[in-house]
Every structure is written in structure tokens, then in C-alpha cells.
Amino acid sequence: MPFDLTVLTPHLDTLLAGALLTAGVCALGIAAAFALATALGVLAVGGGWAGRLARLYVDVFRNVPFVVQVFFLFYGLPEVGVYIDAFWTGVLALGLVGGAYGSDVVRSGILAIEPGVVEAAKVGGLSRPAIIRRIVLPIALRTAIRPLGSVFVNLVLSSSILSMITLDEVTGTARGVASETYRPFEVYAFLLAAYAGLTYAVSLGIDALHRRLNRHMADNGAARGAAPGAMEGTA
């Protein structure tokens, strides 16, 4: 059988419905991950039991495979009486793991702030919550936007794993199309290219956002880590 992408045309609307579900679960998951990453990042910088707990959380969620986390949430939790449907399990799982990876980024963004800035705010009489909200986070998140972006791109890729808990997102629908058309190579090659195109577009958007948020900086925020981000994955 020669390579022929036209076999996919009758199934494009099915795949599109799956893609929309992927977009939905990813958008909610990324929003949850961003909120959790910010909160955990702030906590992890501090000492005391809160800091230790935040670092333990990150350690656990970074070192256990995403599939195992998803299975635990979807199949394990009902055993103790907690029922969540596939879609919200997906949002929860993406939020939990994205929060763990993202908090490391936020944490290093906070650690990179010049101590003088925070000291000036303290001398100015700002309360601790006000310093975090008005001084620390605006600076830290601005430098963290690019590495956070690659964490979110990886979340989009990880969302394909949710097809294993009966969620019919784009990978799940593609499996259906592959078994219906008997043309798995075309289906999965198309899907692979679609994911790559999507993540490429997202990273271009993040670059633009990064430049816009850092437009007042002398070097346009050009200073960034050489390699990190490249291997920040979730699996």
C-alpha cells in the first residue's frame, strides 16, 4: 500500500472533534498547572514545613511516570470512594504534574531576583503578601515565561496519554480512525505532524509573549538558560 493521506478526508471531522477535546483539557490543565506552579514556587523558596512539603510534592510528581499518576487517579481513587470522570481526571492530572514541573521554573525565577529589590520593598514597609504579589511574582514570572512555556508544551504532548483512560481526545479518536481505515501509518504520521505543528506554533507564541513582557528590558530579556527547558518533560 503506497502512502496516501487522502484516505483521511472522510474522518477529518472526527479528528477535529478529538482535537477540540484535547484543546479543552489542555487549556484547563495548563491554567490549573500555572496556578499551582506559582503557589508551589513561592512556597518552595521559603523554609519551614511549608517549603519542605512543597519540595516533597515536586519530588514525588516529577519522579513517578504520568501514566501511573493517571491510573492512580482514575482507577485507584474510586476504591476509596472518590469518583472523577475521565475529562476532569485529565485536567486534574495535567494540573498536578504541570504544577510540579512549573514550580521549579518559578522557584528559580524567584531565586534569580536581586536581593536588593526585595530589601527595598521591605524598607518601603510593604507587607509580605504585597511584596510577593507586587514585586516578586511580576519579576519572576516575566523571566520564567519561556521555560514555563516549554513545560506547557510538554503538557500538551502528555495529554495524548489520557487516551488510555477512555478519554476520546485526538489520539483516542485517531486510534479509532486507524482501526476503521486499516491505514495506521497515514493516521499516526498525520497526527505526529499535527502535534509537532501545534507545539511549534505554541512555542512561537510564547517567544512573542516573552518579548512583549520583557520589552522594557535593555536586552529584551535575551538572557536565558542555555539548555534547560529542552529536557523538561512529563511522561
Binding site: M1, F3, V153, L157, S158, S159, S160, I161, S163, T171, A174, R175, A178, Y182, R183, P184, F185, E186, V187, Y188, A189, L191, L192, A193, Y195, A196, T199, Y200, A235
Partner: peptide, 23 residues
């Protein structure tokens, strides 16, 4: 390699295990 880095491993596995034998 850029294509491999920017796509889900699950889809890559499906492509190799189900797709390549069909081809």
C-alpha cells in the same frame, strides 16, 4: 529530530508498532 522532540511518545509508539508494519 525536531519532529521527534515535538510529538507525543505515545503517537510515535503507535506509528512504529501499528503504522510501519502496515506499510
Amino acid at each position: 529530530l525536531e519532529l521527534l522532540r515535538n510529538s507525543p511518545v505515545l503517537v510515535q509508539l503507535f506509528l512504529v508498532f501499528f503504522g510501519v508494519p502496515a506499510l
